[in-house]
Amino acid sequence: MYGFLIAVGILLLLSIIWMVYRIQTLVSVVKGSDKKIATGSNKVNAIMFVLFLVGATVLMFWYSIKEFDNYNLPVASEHGVITDELFWITMAVTGIVFIITHVLLFWFPYKYQYKEDRKASFYPENNKLELIWTTVPAVVLALLVIGGWRAWSDITAPAPENSHVVEIMGYQFAWEVRYPGMDNVLGEHDYRLINSSNISGVDFSDKNALDDFSSPVVVIPKGEPVLFKIRARDVLHSVFAPHMRLKMDAVPGMPTRFWFTATKTTEEMRAELNDPEFVYEIACTEICGRGHFSMRKEIRVVEPEEYRKWLADQKPYIVNNPALVADLPAELKELAEITISEYK
């Protein structure tokens, strides 16, 4: 149906163009205007530039203002506030340049359109001007970069000692979230240990792994640093938490990390946005195959007390599935069984 309509549209367009084309060629031959340097169209084109400038500017401002709350995602992390600020400073600087250069670019064609009796001015160079417009952008850019560099250094600095560690592993096509348990140390892992009951390849012969647990949602406390340890088990993925202004690739064979501090609980954000359905999300931003667009994980930001309560309620892998430790050497197995009984 659409296809048919499009086909008819194209056909119509083509035939109109054909007719206009034939007529105007004949007319121009009759008028002899094909010998002139600039015909009446020159003026039309010149005016079009000005119209375009005005029209596009109005549209841009109208839409940017009207939609501001839609495209401007609320921010919920400490560093996100800083990078957002950098973003908007850059927007202001480049916005001004954008408008000035475009006003000139579209106004000159109107102002200096071809006139038979005028000669263009022969103005081949001016080293002073070149110098000015080399140094001014250089200085402005330097200022912008220094801001960016300081933010970047802070963001990528080692995570604070007391960070809550969460492991996020990407695989086709989902995220697996592992918590280190009470000891806040993740157990070792090895990709050769992966199977259907141990999808992140946790090595349970490491006693740090005994209290590790998995969670269907990423639960984190507000106001305390959180360290995402990120890895992938098949192809590249990328952890993207838009409200946290957080993004880091998940690379098979090379663990990566990103730490941040959330500033608003999910509940607070719901109240602020007046949207009871609101959730923080993680998406994948590195192409990884068929299900790339569907790797969704939820982040739930809660008050620290609530976080600690939640943490205490979680059951380690080995409690949910004691078979995981069945093959361990005797002494480790004993340790594991003690852990299991503690949680019962």
């Binding site: 600039a38 000139l104 064609p109 071809y114 263009a120 952008p137 850019l141």
Partner: peptide, 26 residues
């Protein structure tokens, strides 16, 4: 990366100045 933006900017300014006080045929 931000250094490479500078020559790009210079080119733009030069284009604009070329149009300035020209006798433009579209």
């Amino acid at each position: 990366t931000l250094i490479i933006a500078i020559p790009s900017a210079v080119k733009v300014f030069n284009y604009l100045t070329t149009l300035w006080r020209g006798n433009l045929v579209f």
